[in-house]
Computed example of a mutant assay.
Amino acid sequence: MSGNARWMKEAKHFGVMVHYLSHTQPRSGEHEQDFNRMIDKFDMETFMEQFNHIGANWIIFTLGQNTGYYCSYNKYLESLAPGCCSRRDLALELAVRVKESGNKFIAYLPTEVDANVEKMREAFGWDLHPTDKSEFMKKYMLFVKEYSDKFGRLADGWWFDGCYNASEKSFLRTREWDNTRFERDLWFAAVRSGNPEAAISMCPGANSMNYVFDIEDFLAGEVDFGTYPPYELPAGMQPHVLFWLDCSWGHWDAPGEIVPPKVSEDELYEYIVACKLRGAAVTINIGIYEDGSMAEKSVEMLHRVSKRLDERK
């Protein structure tokens, strides 16, 4: 197995993921429309208190997705599309805190901007050609490299979304492009520019145990709860599953309480143990509010599951 993701298999517990984006909703009141004010109000102390209480061994955190906004400064992106990055470098601040807690930080980015705002598509040249994405990829690799260099060894891994063959995905805006847009060696060099030991995973879509390149360090594994990774993967690739526990990936529809976990504590514990017996790592996506606090019922359930894993022989 690649040493870059060995820590995932060796971890006692599991990882968590949160989708914190510009349209993340509050528990009550009106959603903050100004992205910088929203980011400024993120309560890092509460977030870290909950993260440590859970007992998670790593976190996957979104730098940005399809809203035109990113919660970490990127000099190259700002040269293309000024005003897209928050004043507060939230993701970098979080990476520092997670590493100080003795845990791992994995950065999340998409690999396409098909559903992003027009400003972002224009900046990266996404719509220049329906199938030839070479200009986009040239710019996007500079964008990714800028983040990689800035995070350096604070980023233990990268989970890349949107590695699609677009004709297979009915929800996309355009349908002609596919994964031939990647120049594998140049892409991996850009991602690992800041940390040669960073673990890389590339997700070709939900409910799929596929991968894009056989040299990825861990399987993206975006699945429904209860699905197991295959026993046979390319040599060195860490089996891994990622699923949502409460709200479907993010708390985005309207202000209010995040729904409770969709499975029982026993079901969750037994699934994690079964994955571990297969040598697979587990990441659990839980809901997060606009102020940076996570869904309490999910936090408490995961805390109890961590305690049970500690007691397991």
Rank of each mutant, 00 (worst) to 15 (best):
A189K: 08
E197G: 04
G194C: 07
P196S: 01
Y211Q: 01
F218Q: 01
V212I: 14
E183N: 05
G205K: 05
N195G: 04
R184S: 14
E197N: 09
Y211R: 10
I215Q: 05
C203F: 02
P196G: 09
Y211F: 15
A206H: 07
S208I: 05
E197S: 10
W187D: 07
A199R: 11
F213I: 02
D185N: 04
V191N: 06
E197A: 13
N207C: 11
D214H: 08
G194T: 05
V212G: 10
F213Q: 06
S208P: 01
V212R: 07
A198E: 06
A220T: 06
S193D: 11
I215S: 09
A190S: 10
A206Q: 12
G194P: 13
S208W: 03
A190I: 06
A199N: 05
G205I: 12
L186V: 14
A199L: 09
N207I: 03
E197T: 11
S201Q: 07
I200W: 13
F213S: 01
I215L: 07
F218A: 01
A198N: 03
N195K: 11
D185L: 01
M202T: 12
G194Y: 11
N207R: 11
F213C: 04
G194L: 14
A189V: 00
F213P: 01
F218P: 02
L186P: 03
V191Q: 01
N207H: 10
M209C: 10
M209G: 15
F213A: 14
A199F: 01
G205H: 05
R192H: 13
E197K: 12
Y211D: 06
A199E: 07
C203L: 02
A189D: 14
C203N: 15
A220F: 00
A199I: 06
E197Y: 15
E216Q: 08
F213L: 11
A206M: 05
N207Q: 13
A190D: 09
I200E: 14
A220N: 04
M202D: 03
F213V: 12
D185P: 02
S193I: 14
F218R: 10
D217W: 12
S193T: 10
W187R: 03
C203Y: 04
D185Q: 01
L186D: 09
M209N: 13
R184F: 08
V212T: 15
G205A: 11
E216I: 05
N195P: 11
D214R: 05
M209R: 06
V191A: 15
L186E: 14
P204F: 02
P196H: 10
L186A: 15
D185C: 00
N210A: 15
E183K: 04
D214M: 00
R184V: 13
N195L: 02
M202K: 05
L186Y: 13
E216H: 00
A190R: 03
S193M: 14
A198K: 09
E197I: 05
N195Y: 02
A189M: 07
S193L: 05
N195Q: 10
W187Y: 14
R184Y: 07
F188V: 08
